[in-house]
């Protein structure tokens, strides 16, 4: 466990703030940036970095979902059902993370970073909505008020096994690598399962709290979660994502996506360089 100094806490707070801002601007959690920074730049063991990041993921999920609850954008039924898969995946990932070598996790992170970068650059944007307000959304579908079009839209959930499988993998990757996993779930829910992007993102952000908790508890029990550093990171991420959401509405994210995809390719290469030794 690293020695905690005020300077280190300040560095972690700043890193959290930058990750939170980037995450809010790009529409993903900041974990994919925070974990490599803590592991590769600050030099924390991978497990310590993942534990801190998972804690920030839980805080972001709770904050964002508390703000959205009551607007029907979060599909709670679908979320609860898919959580069965994500929490199971996360539980297994959390145990696996304690048993495999750091180099394996670094190489896996390298692969996931490339996947995230590619998804970010080729993000699908299907609308998937039924404009007839009387349409039946089924047991799992939803209905919400869409700001852009100013109408209430309805959607049905298709290919539930695909949604469950994607959720299981996202949960697994989440607690193995310390990221939220939304970047894996959301595009699949949107492209294949009939869920509009905003509802998929809101439901995923809602689920991620439970997913990350299932993983974080295991890191906590293993003594890899340092409370002072986690506190600094959580507060930094809260501040950063608040700021990011303020500026996010006006800023065009296209150049930022390209820049951050480039950063993720570099992160991937560094993870492979470290993990290959």
């Amino acid at each position: 466990m690293p020695l905690v100094t005020p300077a280190l806490a300040a560095i972690i707070f700043t890193a959290g703030a930058v990750s939170g801002t980037l995450g809010a601007l790009l529409g993903l959690g900041g974990g994919v940036f925070l974990v490599p920074f803590l592991n590769l730049v600050v030099g924390f063991p991978f497990g310590v970095a993942a534990a801190i990041s998972l804690t920030t993921v839980i805080a972001t999920s709770s904050t964002v979902s508390a703000g959205r609850a009551g607007r029907q954008l979060i599909n709670m039924r679908l979320g609860m059902l898919l959580e069965v898969a994500t929490a199971g995946g996360s539980f297994l990932g959390g145990i696996t993370a304690q048993l495999v070598a750091q180099s394996v996790l670094q190489r896996l992170f390298g692969i996931v970073a490339v996947v995230v970068a590619i998804i970010m650059l080729t993000r699908l944007r299907r609308r998937n909505v039924i404009l007839d307000p009387a349409a039946d959304p089924g047991v799992l579908g939803g209905r919400y008020y869409e700001d852009e079009s100013g109408t209430t839209v309805t959607y049905r959930v298709k290919r539930l096994p695909v949604a469950l499988g994607a959720s299981f993998i996202a949960g697994n990757v989440s607690s193995l690598l310390g990221i939220g996993g939304g970047i894996i779930k959301v595009p699949i829910l949107n492209a294949w399962c009939g869920i509009p992007l905003r509802a998929a993102a809101a439901t995923s952000a809602f689920m991620i709290g439970v997913t990350a908790t299932a993983g974080a508890i295991i890191y906590y029990g293993h003594g890899q979660l340092e409370p002072t550093l986690a506190a600094a990171a959580v507060l930094g991420v809260q501040l950063g994502s608040w700021g990011g959401m303020r500026f996010g509405a006006s800023a065009s994210a296209k150049w930022l996506k390209i820049l951050m995809a480039a950063v993720l390719f570099i992160v991937s290469a560094m993870m492979f360089a470290r993990g290959g030794r």
């Binding site: 929490a87 199971g88 539980f91 908790t213 299932a214 508890i217 295991i218 906590y220 293993h222």
Partner: peptide, 9 residues
């Protein structure tokens, strides 16, 4: 599942 994680911890 969350309780299982706590037990694993």
């Amino acid at each position: 599942e969350l309780l299982a994680s706590a037990v694993a911890a």
